[in-house]
């Protein structure tokens, strides 16, 4: 019971804080971008920090990522798989993902 109350209290605090932050929609935007970028992580690594054999996207300028992905999409750039994956996302989604990766510190 005590624990339950605490949990609810915690939730309440967050709700209230979220209310204070409502003026900053960038936060929600970031978490959506983060989730979208996480769909690339199985190959390009968590937050774009790739292990051996796949390209790291962390710290890569957003324009560059956007350009590469759109070239995959049009078939201009040869690919084994990226031409198929890139067609699954809208341009806006790719822009969000690219900006997210660009912001990740390169290791």
């Amino acid at each position: 019971m005590k624990q339950n109350t605490m949990r609810l209290a915690w939730r309440g605090v967050l709700l209230a804080t979220a209310g204070l932050l409502a003026a900053a929609p960038a936060f929600a935007q970031t978490s959506v971008a983060r989730s979208l970028a996480a769909t690339c992580a199985n190959c390009h690594g968590t937050d774009g920090h790739a292990k051996d054999g796949m390209k790291t996207l962390a710290g890569k300028p957003a324009d560059e990522i956007i350009k590469l992905v759109s070239e995959f999409r049009t078939g201009q750039r040869p690919a084994t798989i990226m031409h198929q994956i890139s067609k699954g996302y809208t341009e806006d989604q790719i822009k969000m993902v690219a900006e997210y990766f660009a912001q990740q510190p390169a290791k």
């Binding site: 609810l8 209290a9 915690w10 939730r11 309440g12 605090v13 967050l14 709700l15 209230a16 804080t17």
Partner: peptide, 8 residues
């Protein structure tokens, strides 16, 4: 919840 909100 209400209490928590007030607390927050």
């Amino acid at each position: 919840f209400l209490k928590a909100a007030a607390l927050a």
